[in-house]
Design a protein around this nucleic acid. Structure first.
Lengths: 349, 349
DNA sequence: TTAATTTTAGGAAACGTTTGCGGTTTCGAT
DNA sequence: ATCGAAACCGCAAACGTTTCCTAAAATTAA
């Protein structure tokens, strides 16, 4: 589309000087006399000159654009991460292109190629549920594209990552349930490919061990999709078993929600009969009845950190032409105690 | 960043022909002999040639990028709209840059400028709560940038818009409450600047009139932010009044949620004492207790339609160099009846 | 006054494409 | 043998910048 925006050439012609002089004047280059600078800047102001970003990108081989790949935008957590990313990206002068893999490896592959073709300066990636091989990522990485992984990371030594401390978050949640007097704590496990799934399971196990609670394998049930329906179905099975759990720690809030539905439909009380704790502190969790205790992940902050790391990497590389040492940022989780897990007393504010 | 991607020149050099021939061969131009085409395509394939989009953009003055401005990404509705937009945009070969105004007019202004500077081919806009003047939009529109407004539209004759039929949605919701035997139906009104607020109020009023129910001005309360807290506070006041409502129709789901909280805390039952209906069918609405009846807006479809309209406009303009006639797409809403409004019998389903 | 600097400015190439126009070939037809 | 038209291809300009290099003008030093 041609919008007839005024260019450097227009200014040069009007002033009877050359484009190069205008360019330098606008950048306050010492070679240019104060008078010329003044004239150029005033005319630029008057004509409302705006540099053509596309031409700039071509010239500098730098698009000032960050590519983002997330599993799904409609997840509360991911949309807050995006907000965090945009926050630092825009104030650093970067645009952001967002793509969704929809939890599909195939989509993830095409997304990453599309971003590469758009010549983004770097990528922020959270892998899909299906992603268990990483050639598509490696091949782009090999071309030298800076990447930062967040939340659902690709653990390879050469990329920076931002994660939350899933292990200790899960441990804290489980400990909390133990503190409430629960002894038969079930765990609804998440998608098997994801590191976060393992970490959360690990935290759960560690807490049990720390308290000398025996691990009952029957109490660990897989929810490979991590949906409400799965959580519900898994819980229904748990409830039918001879030795019913007295608490459920779910890998995420939707699964926990499903668990709550199953428990209520079975005529049992939360938390009296069974306490429930989720993970991620989705928007809806505070609105449930009873309100769901959950492990809060600082999504906005995660987005900010990831973007900062990426931008630093991009700018470091453009200077020294080599990658900075990869960094791993681990963000603290926060257990939000609500009524769904409070067998004793009221929530500590 | 320099990734040493292979260019048309590389292929030309390798084959001992000119870049123009390579370009034409790749585009299957009739001037080029089959042999040359074959050689070029094979080498391009072998070297994994990918056209440089930035150079293309500069050359054609077309970025193949759509700019989007929404109030907030974390709203379920808006994130589904985005998904719809990306769906059609990507399959039509467009990238999407998303910005959030955070319901601030100021941010909206800077966003729109930033998008313009990024030379997007067109914009998709849903205005902020604060937006009551439109010079910032007009000034960009005047430069000929194609725009399509969705949901929260700027009603000016010369732009295409996609909206849902808020009026009839609200009317249907109110009618439903009347059908349930409610006679004192309160309305929690939304942000005063927005057209959707007026439409929803209008639908509410029409339904009352159609059924010869007198309008009680005291039953119409403003919630200028449309938040849970506001809905709760407004409802508390309504409940204290001498002639308490027997139903509440809220301008959106958060307000309805607040109303539910207030009602429950007052020891009243939903829907027996007071029925509640919301608008937008947020993700959490089905999870409340009782599940909230709400007017569903087809967000994904809205995004698709808006993107289609915009792309059509962009491509029409690049051909005929003038704007196509503006279009207005009105999408149907759908009343999702759940328990929060069912005084009689069970949900049809 | 002249030579050596410094200051200021411009020319031109480059980033990777596309495309109007002109220039060779080739080949069948006269 | 010559002509005309296809068929095929390259030159160069253009999109809007930046930047290396060179050059003129102004200033200073000798």
């Amino acid at each position: 589309m041609k919008y007839n925006q005024v260019t450097i050439k227009d200014i040069a012609r009007e002033l009877g000087i050359s484009p190069s002089t205008v360019s330098r004047a606008l950048k306050d280059h010492p070679d240019i006399s104060p008078q010329t600078k003044k004239a150029v800047n005033e005319l630029a102001e008057k004509l409302n000159y705006q540099p053509n970003i596309v031409a700039l990108s071509l010239r500098q081989s730098k698009t000032n654009t960050l590519g983002v790949i997330i599993p799904e935008l409609v997840h509360f957590f991911f949309s807050t991460v995006i907000s965090g990313i945009e926050d630092v990206a825009y104030s650093a002068g970067y645009n952001v292109i967002i793509t969704q893999s929809n939890e599909s490896l195939q989509r993830e592959k095409t997304d990453i190629k599309a971003l590469f073709n758009s010549r983004v300066d770097g990528m922020l990636i959270s892998v899909s549920r299906e992603t268990s091989s990483f050639e598509h990522i490696e091949s782009i990485l090999a071309k030298g594209v800076p990447m930062v992984f967040f939340d659902r990371v690709y653990e390879n030594a050469n990329s920076s990552t931002v994660i939350v401390d899933d292990l200790s978050g899960a441990k804290e949640a489980t400990q909390h349930l133990i503190d409430q007097g629960c002894l038969r704590i079930a765990h609804l496990e998440g998608p098997p490919n994801l590191g976060i799934t393992k970490q959360r399971l690990e935290g759960y196990l560690e807490a049990l061990k720390d308290n000398n609670v025996a691990v009952d394998k029957d109490l660990i049930v897989s929810c490979p999709l991590g949906t409400i329906e799965e959580g519900k179905a898994a819980t229904e099975i748990l409830l039918k078993s001879s030795k019913r759990p007295d608490a459920i720690f779910a890998t995420n809030d939707p699964a926990a929600m499903g668990a709550m539905q199953a428990i209520k439909e079975a005529g049992l009380k939360i938390p009296e009969d069974i306490a429930v704790v989720g993970f991620s502190n989705w928007f809806f969790s505070a609105l449930l009845e009873p309100p769901l205790t959950s492990v809060d992940q600082p999504g906005f902050e995660m987005g900010q950190e990831a973007a900062k790391l990426l931008i630093r990497q991009i700018e470091f590389k453009s200077k020294d032409n080599e990658d900075p040492a990869p960094e791993t940022k681990v963000l603290k989780t926060r257990l939000i105690v609500r009524d769904s897990s409070l067998k004793k007393g009221k929530a500590k504010k």
